[in-house]
């Protein structure tokens, strides 16, 4: 690291990389908050979102914002259907069984996408823009737009949780399902909503990953370890935690790439998971375990 500018550039890169992890991590934590199991299938939902967005954008010629909305919807519906059909029946057996089921589910979803689309790489129909430079620090407009999209979606979710009756009901179920039930909140309805939103956000995030790279059936799988790291660092079940955790993991991986070796970025994600779970299982920012 020759000077402060290089360090700043690494930080900027990390924030950009982290911002695309943000939505899948929020999705994961949103589902965890209500249903109390880690859903590995967010990788599959992210891939589904990426391909839904591709169909909308390339095959149907929709502009990117509309394609993003479509990615959210399709992934959300797919997530809801998958949850109801595959994971919900496993809930009585405990969170570990559901977690293992979700590993199988993500393999299933990946292969459904492979069956339908093949393995070929695909790119969205968008121009690639040159970086902007601020005093030597380069930032890409597309990545800024992605970060903005992620923040806007996260913000919309916060608003939903904070200011609507539905949001308050969701938080109530997350805090104490029994009490919420007594108060007349239908926990099943809330669970379905959480899964729809969580899977939808994962899908939106998957398309953001795709906008920054290109997509194939392994798109979600490639980011899943980092997404889990983000969710755990932020505190499983904590939505603001996931947002901050994503940035921490993004920056951490970039720093590790520079200091350690680019071949060992994923090790950072693992170490982050290990350290946080051991020392502070409620996450760096979460109050609740």
């Amino acid at each position: 690291m020759e000077d402060w500018r290089d360090l700043l550039q690494v930080l900027v890169n990390g924030v950009m990389a982290g911002s695309v992890l943000m939505l899948p991590a929020i999705g994961l934590n949103g589902i965890f908050a209500v249903l109390r199991y880690p859903n590995f299938a967010v990788a599959g939902f992210a891939t589904i979102g990426a391909f839904a967005g591709w169909v909308a954008n390339v095959a149907w010629g929709m502009p990117a914002p509309a394609a993003l909305a479509f990615a959210f919807l399709v992934a959300g519906v797919a997530g809801l259907l998958a949850e109801e059909a595959a994971l919900r029946p496993l809930r009585p057996a405990g969170p570990l069984t559901v977690a293992i089921g979700s590993v199988a589910l993500t393999l299933l979803l990946e292969n459904i996408i492979r069956f339908a689309f093949g393995n070929d790489l695909r790119g969205y129909d968008l121009p690639v823009q040159r970086d902007w430079r601020f005093d030597g620090i380069r930032v890409n407009p597309q990545q800024l737009a992605n970060a903005g999209t992620a923040l806007a979606a996260a913000g919309a979710l916060f608003a939903l949780l904070a200011f609507t009756r539905l949001g308050r009901a969701m938080r109530a179920v997350a805090d104490n399902p029994v009490l919420a039930d007594i108060k007349g909140v239908d926990p099943d309805r809330i669970a379905r909503l959480a899964v729809f939103l969580g899977a939808g956000l994962a899908g939106l995030g998957g398309m953001l990953v795709g906008l920054d790279t290109s997509i194939d059936p392994l798109t979600g799988f490639r980011v899943i370890l980092s997404v889990f790291a983000a969710a755990v660092v932020g505190g499983l079940g904590s939505i603001p935690g996931a947002a901050l955790g994503a940035l921490v993991v993004g920056v951490g991986e970039e720093l590790a790439g520079v200091i350690l070796s680019p071949a060992y970025r994923s090790v950072t994600a693992f170490l982050a998971i290990l350290l946080v779970l051991l020392l502070r299982p409620q996450g760096l920012f979460g109050a609740r375990a």
Binding site: P38, L96, I100, L225, V267, L274, L277
Partner: peptide
């Protein structure tokens, strides 16, 4: 290190561990 973790946390850590070995 991890023997005291809950089942689903243990699942996450051990899955990551295998990836580190592979790396």
């Amino acid at each position: 290190l991890v023997a005291r973790l809950r089942g689903d946390y243990l699942a996450i850590v051990t899955l990551g561990f295998a990836e580190v070995i592979r790396l």
